[in-house]
């Protein structure tokens, strides 16, 4: 899922300083699961915005809502139920949601309530870790299912760097050396020879270096 974190409240207050009616809009997708932008976080942010404005001696009205997703056109249309009740939207969806609202509602002021962090999973309650870089050219079949692009600090493709010590990364003791883990795991699943395969120089054009990416499924377009 997409992992996000609420922006500092003062940054958000700065964005909406001229607004008198604010729609705080959550998303019931990824950001609900990672507790950054679901209904509960909408309630909290709306309260913090009111308190922050109150402290500045300003009066603000907030409307709270959430959409099933903010990354699909048909759900964005549901924003129209609040027409006239806001002069700015603070979207608590990932950056996709903010972009979709901006794309589809050309005259609406929309601001991000969260920082979109990474593609990851829940390692423990309240802990999320990056697992995928969305690079567009998956090599997990060669690396025992563990991603060197996202989980190696240097995105190395041919084994660890010289900074790997006792299975930990040189950038921080808390970070596992994913190449050590790839090595160990390939051995456990009887595929240790895969470590000898030299990965060719990587074409990063699928990773966004060639501009905004697009997937077109002709069988689904009518």
């Amino acid at each position: 899922m997409i992992i996000a974190e609420r922006k500092p409240i003062n940054e958000i207050l700065g964005m909406v300083r001229d607004a008198e009616k604010i729609l705080v809009l959550g998303c019931r997708g990824c950001v609900t699961v990672c507790s950054a932008g679901g209904d509960r976080e909408v309630e909290i942010l709306a309260s913090l915005i009111r308190l922050g404005m109150q402290k500045q001696g300003k009066k603000v009205e907030t409307v709270e809502g959430s959409l099933v997703r903010q990354c699909d056109k048909e759900y964005i249309d549901e924003i129209d139920q609040w027409t006239g009740q806001y002069d700015a939207i603070v979207s608590m969806a990932c950056g996709v949601g903010v972009n979709f609202i901006a794309n589809l509602r050309p005259t609406v002021k929309v601001y991000p309530g969260v920082n979109t962090s990474f593609l990851g999973g829940s390692a423990d309650q309240g802990v999320w870790t990056e697992q995928c870089a969305g690079c567009g050219n998956c090599v997990l079949h060669l690396t025992g299912g563990l991603c060197p692009v996202a989980r190696c600090a240097k995105s190395l493709m041919n084994g660890p760097c010289g900074g790997s010590v006792n299975g930990r990364c040189e950038i921080h003791q808390d970070v596992e050396c994913i190449w050590q883990s790839i090595h160990d795991r390939l051995g456990r699943i009887g595929n240790a020879d895969a470590m000898h395969t030299i990965a060719p120089i990587r074409d990063w054009s699928t990773a966004g270096h060639g501009g905004p990416r697009k997937v077109l499924r002709d069988d689904l377009t009518v």
Binding site: R40, E43, I44, S47, L48, R50, L51, Q54
Partner: peptide, 11 residues
């Protein structure tokens, strides 16, 4: 107790 309940008290 939810965070929002405590914030509401301040509000």
């Amino acid at each position: 107790l939810q965070v929002s309940t405590l914030l509401k008290a301040f509000e």
